[in-house]
Amino acid sequence: MTPPPPSKPRWNFSRSGTLPGFGLTLGLTLFYLSLLVLMPLAGVFFKTAGLSGAAFMAKAFNDRALAAYRLSFGSALTAAMINMVAGLLVAWVLVRYRFLGKKLLDAMVDLPFALPTAVAGIALTAIYAPNGWLGSRLVPLGIQVAFTPLGIVVAMIFIGLPLVVRTVEPVLQDLDTQLEEAALTLGATRIQVFVRVILPILLPALLTGFALAFARGLGEYGSVIFIAGNMPSVSEIAPLLIVIQLEQYDTLGATAIAAVMLVFSFLLLLVINLLQVWRQQRFHH
């Protein structure tokens, strides 16, 4: 999908010599970002800074909020882990196997990027509701998906899958077949080749995909709220709690929770960037 990033940035020639437009484009970029992204985000922290420590704790870490964080984190973590395995499987099949309809399957992996989350949400609910397409078959087995935390995980799997597949796929594609051949001539079995050679090489990409899927699941709203059931402290995710607080005109409460979520988003962003650096440093000649 995305054109592969260059393996090595070419630092060795100066780029700023002859080309015009640096000031103009940099100015425009900074202006746009400040106005649209930085200033509004800073607002959250200004607003919460107005709260006393105790008031902030009461707003951001009351029982209902804690339950919401736990649910959001737990579901996003579970979904990201499932996606890490499933995403590797899908990427493996797409890169290494040849079969009828492969192109179609490849295009379909991006569906969660293209399908509006609300549509995904009502469709998943229709499938897993007790009277739904799959739900009606699962409920007799004692598996209730919709309106439970399990439903939240299902929705998060849906939206996170392409993130893992598209991160792992190019690395798997570029994997030198000679590495596997070398391992085989050295006496490794196929399983040893996978565990000791292929998996370690894919690991940074897998972790990046995991972190991306986790971050996406954590903030997800549209696809989750329809299937979640939204029972306070049971199946109420953190973003939903923000919306509910806003609807009850508790702007401060919403902001406090948003601040907590933002801090986690930034931490995850940092982790993802560090993973990227690690990948660059250790895995490129």
């Binding site: 000679q178 070398a182 391992a183 006496g187 000791r196 370690p200």
Partner: peptide, 25 residues
């Protein structure tokens, strides 16, 4: 013993790990 033109060394292992690989598997 097969030596590849582009070495095919395991990037995620040290030199020691690379050489020990055939014995460890």
């Amino acid at each position: 013993g097969f030596v590849f033109q582009h070495y095919a060394l395991f990037r995620h292992m040290t030199v020691f790990g690379n050489i020990a690989f055939g014995l460890e598997v």
